[in-house]
Design a protein around this nucleic acid. Structure first.
Lengths: 340, 340
DNA sequence: CTGTTAGCGCGTTCAT
DNA sequence: ATGAACGCGCTAACAG
């Protein structure tokens, strides 16, 4: 089942078989047909390793995650993964994933992946503001696309949602509902998406003339537990926030729980907006207002962009900023003090 | 930085360099030393693809997950992953992971991985009782180890915890605490681990002379939400269970929530035992009794076994059954009816 | 249009 | 102890 055997069985040379199979135009239609038929009959497929040695391409890419911050199979991480994989398959590419251990071994592990030359390119997820992984990939000049931006110097291809615009819009919506004390429960500051969301938040505060001192920003894990914890603290204050803007739906669900524990009503006494448009948020009581990021599309775009880079049709500075859409639901309502 | 360049710079032949580097004995100590020094100085490392074409080995394996049932980075999935990766690294092997989409594309996607010959072997996680993935791997004769057993015919290497023994022991513990109505909230029946846990449970019921009709078995998702839902139903019954044995700690935490909602006290009115010895369970109120599975060690064993199979030092029928340990904590106590 | 030739980078006999 | 030569399986530049 090598190309040799195939050529012998047809009585023609190896190179003719190779060209027929690889779609070269300088081979007669009749020969091409014979080759295709024989290949199918003998169930031939080129040895991928030999193919790689000759071409330099593996037909595979790696999606790189970092351990403590993302679920590959649930929620948005899973959707991103699905989007990337789908689009790749349409290009006859294959996606493996690598979960980097946090801490010291993170970059060395990524280096081992590159050293192995098992993949033609990389999709790096969950970028940080200064991301050593981006630095490495950039230095090694391997084709890569990040999902999320950095704020460092390396120019690189990325796909990202307009986090800033989304939180600008969400904050403005809360302001126009009469809220003056809005708390931002954000992700850790070194995550780029968190940084952008905060910028949008602060811009809206300035535009609306709100006091930054009355609109606290907290940085926390992206979990319901963290959201509940932080919100419980804030709700105990004399001057409690009338609205919470949260970096994820998970945080927002935790906030909602804290509001209930404080004997207050979500959407009336306290408004809550999340991010991600998760199923859990949609089915919450009341339904959770959220930002829909279209992450499946982003995954597909990241994959398509990587394909173009690998084929030399796009450069390392290609960038795609996807708009995100605010979905108002019953968890966010007018500020009660307006009525008094 | 090819072996050619290295040989030229030393003024010796390629083959001598190759043998020196690969530890052949028929090369002089002096030459070997020169080669090693030069290799280090020029930062030489063999091109992995060429190396693979010559040897047939990639130095990488794939850990295969299935999408909707496991988190690669949280909880036990993460620990297993860590164990496998650690042990592999000690063997100079590298682990990538593949998340199979559920449904129709599951097996074809696995086939694509095999066709790509990107890896020397596979660790398959979360086996099912009749697992088409195992069937495929067995047919293709690629080195593989499963974490978890199957009950079908293909003989294959596996590492598993003694699920049956663990639940036998846990059920006996509940019985000796006086419980007569014990509910099992199990995982889906097609998961092998769930099947074994149920066998242990039923064996203990028989030995203890409990009525199977008073000890219901429910099959559900491995989530807190599911646990809460099922437990809420059971607790509403006139003859409610006095103890719940749960397939995961997540389920158990959900059950505990349902118990509280029913105005009952966990560990007094109702006992709960989970599985996995999760951090969340340890910090719950009261602390959750659970089964500790030593999953890190299992991951390491699976990796070690796979290495031996790849090297031909173990056969496809090597099997490792790890004991699991019951950890009694305050969530499980004596049955209240005993005192009356 | 097709066959011959030359690599891709390395491991491994077979002589010397 | 060392070098020359061959093969792994395939692609691609060069002839014809």
């Amino acid at each position: 089942m090598s190309i040799q055997a195939l050529a012998d069985s047809l009585g023609i040379s190896i190179s003719t078989v190779s060209r027929a199979l690889n779609g070269y135009t300088d081979v007669s239609a009749a020969t091409r047909q014979r080759v295709f038929d024989a290949a199918k009959a003998m169930n031939y497929s080129p040895h991928p390793v030999a193919h790689r040695l000759a071409t330099g391409k593996t037909g595979a890419i790696a999606i790189v995650y970092t351990a403590p911050s993302i679920k590959v199979v649930d929620g948005s991480g899973a959707t991103l993964h699905t989007g990337i994989t789908q689009a790749l398959r349409e290009h006859n590419y294959f996606a493996l994933s690598l979960t980097l251990p946090p801490g010291e071994e993170e970059v060395p592990e990524l280096e081992r992946l590159l050293a192995g030359r098992l993949v033609d390119g990389i999709v790096l997820t969950r970028t940080r503001t200064f991301d050593p992984r981006v630095k490495l990939l950039h230095e090694r000049k391997i084709p890569f696309v990040t999902h999320g931006r950095t704020i460092a110097n390396e120019p690189h291809a990325w796909v990202d949602a307009d986090n800033e615009g989304a939180f600008l819009q969400a904050t403005q919506a809360l302001i126009s509902l009469g809220h003056r004390r809005i708390a931002l429960i954000n992700g850790m500051a070194h995550m780029t998406f968190a940084s952008f969301r905060e910028q949008g938040f602060r811009a809206a505060l300035r535009d609306g003339g709100l006091s930054e001192s009355e609109c606290p920003v907290h940085y926390t894990e992206l979990t319901a537990e963290s959201g509940q914890h932080v919100a419980a603290l804030l709700l105990r204050k004399a001057q409690r926030p009338s609205a919470f803007l949260c970096a994820t739906d998970a945080i927002a669900l935790g906030v909602m729980a804290a509001v209930r524990e404080a004997r207050l009503t979500v959407g009336k006494d306290v408004s809550v907006i999340g991010y991600g448009n998760s199923e859990a948020g949609q089915y919450a009581h009341p339904p959770l207002a959220s930002v829909d990021q279209g992450i499946l599309k982003e995954g597909r775009q990241a994959a398509a962009l990587l394909m173009r880079i690998i084929q030399g049709q796009a450069d390392y500075a290609s960038q795609v900023l996807e708009p995100a859409q605010l979905l108002m639901r019953a968890s966010a309502g007018t500020c009660p003090t307006v009525h008094s």
